[in-house]
Write a protein that binds this DNA or RNA. Structure first.
Lengths: 346, 346
DNA sequence: TTGTAAGCGTTATCAG
DNA sequence: CTGATAACGCTTACAA
């Protein structure tokens, strides 16, 4: 673990100035002979550029931060999977922050932008507080938000369309003849929780179905919480014939409970999840799920940020990704599943 | 996006030298009056320390890199989930590298250690080549490998015990009365592929079962590949009564195919996966799987690295994490599953 | 084409 | 206790 050669070491060895070394290393016009001497010295010494010194001078770190609520959540991972290659291709490294949806941690990330250890930030907050907005307004580096922010907020953002997503699902259930469609949601003070709850109500109304508070159960976005919530819901309203779940984890919890209670899926109760994570395709019965385009959103966010880093300083941009319904066995039954697989090819 | 105040700005405003500012900011003994002036100026200016300049001087970046084959693989994610909080608690940021198991990319990561943008590296290579070993020997920062390296390699490493893991699974299947136990493995030129293949053979031998090449199918570590492999295997050897799969994805592919062919799991064919990922618990029937302690390995690796960063320069350490068999419905049947869930509590 | 020298924003040493 | 001042390793005018 030697103490690493610097351009000074090379300069001495090659008998030239550090400026010449720098020029050669950066491919600036230099006499052939000098190039050769410098390259030789660099090779022999096993020289590697010091990224920190370089960043200090150039004011560019070639690092980008991605802050999300929870590394364990498959929806964020889908984003990560898309963000990573885009940034890598553009020569950026990825610095990961997991904030556990703790507001203070997110603010901290925003604050630390001032430390200039990254050139930009992609953030997907679960809740957006006034402090968030304030820090965003004075951020010291470009930021792209994955998620919704209040109208007028001057920040690039890529949002899902929960409303249309929920509607796709509810319409699908309705088309299957379901009329007692319940919802299991996450906390209403989160951006997705609020949006999905409202969209559910709206979708019912538009279909001419009554909105029944009894059919709405609030839990949290985890499987175990989903089980708890669905168990309660079934006790209270055993007559339901469909479940709209605010994410896939909740939906998996629902499948657990329904199975344990001997309710057939989808014959007795059809189930829809949201986010269309890997788990949806892996479960049995496989889970119909509304894709909110996590992957596309991640990709779009990375691309927006790169544009900013390339100097674009125009008005804030907003991208909205269209939702898509992935129909599987939990609503359409096993036959559908079989067909799907065959079509899917080998 | 103003141009950020520096200690010089603060010094001017507070009417003191930059040295005093630095002292105050670092909590070194200073007169109360000076402290007050500096803090006031810093507050008013919204000062944030420049991490890059600081790193250049201190030779510490407070960043650690984690390099893995694929951000999409749940086994690596399990590591990531544990590594992240450990590093965060110790004040380190996480820089993520996804190498797609491309050797050149891994070498690149090792090489880039010389750039000093991180203080250390945790790496989980799928294959370990001579170049890997060579670069490891001359690495410019502490490295911890998650995985096995040749004996004598002077590098901290945290390994799984695939051998014992496979044995646990095979013994379990044997105890259930299975005697035609087939294996679906990944590529034999990967470290895990080789280890698991050898372990399977050994386990059979020790149980007095014949090793039959016909019962071994090589594919790759993905679900789709698993389907293909298992389909072929079933054509060739329809009489098998158990499947030992080299990871969970392959096992899920196996479940797909068995279901499609009308073979009941576990009555006709028992299935075991490896890695015990989230998908194992989510599938139906839920998947018995050998946990190779991905999470524990990640945590141990992070802790080993932190020790090094705290100055420990003793001999290389080796940690081996014991495997554990998570028994679920794909071998023990749905009754077991039900019991499990009840015990699991609310 | 090349060398000298001035930063980039910190930390740390040394006199006062 | 405080202020000059010299690094850290690199890029980049500006001169030669």
């Amino acid at each position: 673990m030697g103490d690493g050669p610097t351009i000074t070491t090379i300069a001495e060895r090659a008998g030239v100035s550090i400026a010449s070394v720098s020029r050669v290393l950066n491919g600036l016009p230099t006499r052939q002979e000098t190039v050769r001497k410098v390259m030789a010295a660099a090779d022999e010494l096993g020289y590697v550029r010091n990224a920190v010194a370089r960043s200090l001078k150039s004011r560019r770190t070639h690092q980008i931060a991605f802050a999300m609520a929870d590394v364990g959540n498959p929806a964020y991972l889908a984003m990560l999977r898309e963000i990573q290659p885009v940034l890598k291709a553009a020569g950026y490294r990825l610095v990961l922050h997991s904030t556990d949806a703790v507001v203070a941690d997110e603010i901290d990330v925003l604050h630390s932008l001032g430390e200039r250890y990254v050139d930009g930030l992609i953030m997907s907050p679960l809740r957006v507080t006034d402090t968030h907005l304030q820090m965003l307004a004075t951020a010291r580096a470009p930021v792209v938000i994955i998620g919704s922010v209040p109208d007028g907020t001057r920040v690039d953002n890529v949002r899902a369309d929960s409303r249309t997503g929920v509607r796709l699902a509810v319409d699908h259930l309705y088309a299957l003849g379901r009329r007692r469609i319940a919802m299991v949601n996450g906390p209403l003070d989160t951006v997705p929780g609020a949006a999905r709850g409202a969209a559910y109500r709206e979708a019912l109304t538009d279909l001419g179905l009554p909105y029944d508070e009894n059919l709405v159960q609030i839990g949290d976005f985890y499987r175990e919480e989903g089980r708890r919530a669905v168990a309660e819901l079934l006790d209270r309203a055993p007559e339901i014939d469909a479940l709209m779940c605010a994410n896939d984890l909740i939906a998996l919890g629902a499948l657990d409970v329904l199975r344990a209670k001997g309710r057939r899926v989808p014959e007795d109760v059809a189930v829809v999840g949201m986010d269309d994570t890997d788990l949806a395709a892996a479960s049995w019965p496989s889970l119909t799920s509304v894709s909110l385009g996590s992957a596309e959103r991640g990709k779009a966010a990375a691309e927006l940020l790169l544009e900013r880093l390339q100097g674009d300083d125009g008005d804030p941009k907003r991208v909205t990704v269209a939702p898509r319904l992935a129909i599987r066995a939990s609503t359409a039954g096993p036959d559908y599943e079989r067909t799907q697989r065959k079509e899917g090819g080998a």
